[in-house]
Simulated scan of single mutants.
Amino acid sequence: MRSWRERVLHTTLFEAGGLVLVTPLASWLTGHGIGRLGLLTVSLATFAMLWNLLWNRLFDRWVPTRRRNLVQRVAQALGFELGLLVMTLPVVAWWLGIGLIEAFWLDLGFMLFFLGYALIFNSAFDGIVQRRLARRNN
């Protein structure tokens, strides 16, 4: 089981990387200024960090191993993204002044992006932690 310290580090790195990648992309795709989108993405990232901590802690209890297979990784990433989508959709629609359907398609696009990002990030993060733990135990 991962410690809270490890989960906070994981979440912080994940969200920081996501913000760097997604804010300019969102601004370009929507035509909204980077400042307006930046405030939204920082707010969503803050919420996502809290959700990430909770979701991954729950997932650690359901799948208590560091060696997860692809199906488990997909379930971990998909569960996080779907939960976040449901909770943030109304906020995105309101903030950007768009309808729920348009916000859904925008969120779906970013969910798919972050699904792939989460698979890659989580696998890399766990690999690095496993190597560090192996070195520490030798």
Score class of each variant (00 low, 15 high):
L85H: 03
L53H: 13
A93M: 04
R36G: 13
N122L: 11
F110P: 06
G31W: 15
V74M: 10
F104S: 07
I34C: 09
L44M: 06
W55A: 01
I98K: 03
I120T: 15
A103D: 03
L54R: 12
L13C: 02
A45G: 10
R73C: 02
L53G: 14
F125G: 05
E81G: 06
V71L: 15
L37V: 15
T12H: 07
M111Y: 07
V63M: 05
T88H: 01
S27G: 13
V86S: 02
W55S: 03
S27W: 14
L106N: 13
R57I: 01
V22D: 04
V129P: 01
L21V: 14
V22N: 07
R66W: 06
I128F: 04
G109W: 14
L54T: 11
E6W: 04
Q76E: 11
E81A: 01
F113H: 09
D60W: 01
V42C: 05
V20S: 05
L44I: 10
R7W: 11
T11G: 13
A45M: 02
W55F: 08
H32C: 12
I120D: 09
L96K: 09
W28A: 13
T88Y: 03
N56I: 02
W51N: 03
A48T: 04
L58P: 04
M111E: 02
R67V: 12
G17Y: 01
W94L: 11
N122T: 13
F80D: 00
N122S: 15
L89K: 04
L13G: 14
Q72C: 06
L84K: 00
I34D: 10
S3P: 10
V86P: 00
L21S: 15
L133Y: 08
R73S: 12
L112W: 13
D60P: 13
L29I: 15
V71P: 03
Q72E: 12
R135S: 08
L53P: 01
I128D: 02
N56R: 00
S43R: 07
T23A: 12
A75F: 07
F121V: 02
G38S: 12
F104Q: 11
R67E: 01
V71Y: 14
A124Y: 03
I128H: 10
I120E: 03
G109A: 04
L21K: 12
T30Y: 04
R57E: 09
L84G: 08
W62D: 02
A77V: 00
D126N: 10
R67T: 14
L89V: 07
G79M: 03
V8C: 08
R7Y: 09
I128Q: 08
A26Q: 13
E102W: 11
N122F: 10
L133S: 12
A75M: 05
